[in-house]
């Protein structure tokens, strides 16, 4: 099965938005490769005609009345925010100043 390079690990860490140290990347290359090697056993099984299972219990669509009910208030929702401004979560600017 797949062999994992250092740049693969760095790419996946970026996708997962995980800041890793150089040392962590080095360790993960080996550890993830070892775990991926365990996955290789699955290739033995012919599964072309087998449907995937995402959900084990059979629950039919459940409908409810379309009613307005109370939900978590703004103060409760914001109570754990690292930074806030009045009733908003505060984040760094994501758009640069427009060029003239």
């Amino acid at each position: 099965m797949a062999s994992l390079s250092r740049s693969d690990v760095e790419h996946v860490a970026h996708l997962a938005r995980l800041g890793l140290t150089e040392e962590e990347v080095t360790r993960l290359v080996g550890q993830l490769q070892h775990i991926l090697d365990q996955y290789a056993v699955l290739a033995e099984l012919p599964t072309d005609r087998i449907p995937p299972t995402a959900q084990t219990i059979e629950v039919e669509n459940i409908l409810r009345d379309d009613l307005v009910t109370p939900s978590l208030g703004a103060q409760d929702a914001l109570a754990g925010a690292p930074e806030r401004s009045t009733d908003y979560f505060l984040v760094p600017a994501i758009l640069a100043e427009a060029d003239p």
Partner: peptide
């Protein structure tokens, strides 16, 4: 890291979909 890798482009069928099929078995 494992989960992101298994779901990432090019590996989804080989890992995640395959695992869901074996889950059926």
């Amino acid at each position: 890291m494992l989960g992101t890798y298994a779901l990432s482009a090019g590996y989804y069928d080989a890992y995640y979909l395959k695992a869901q099929k074996v889950r059926t078995l």
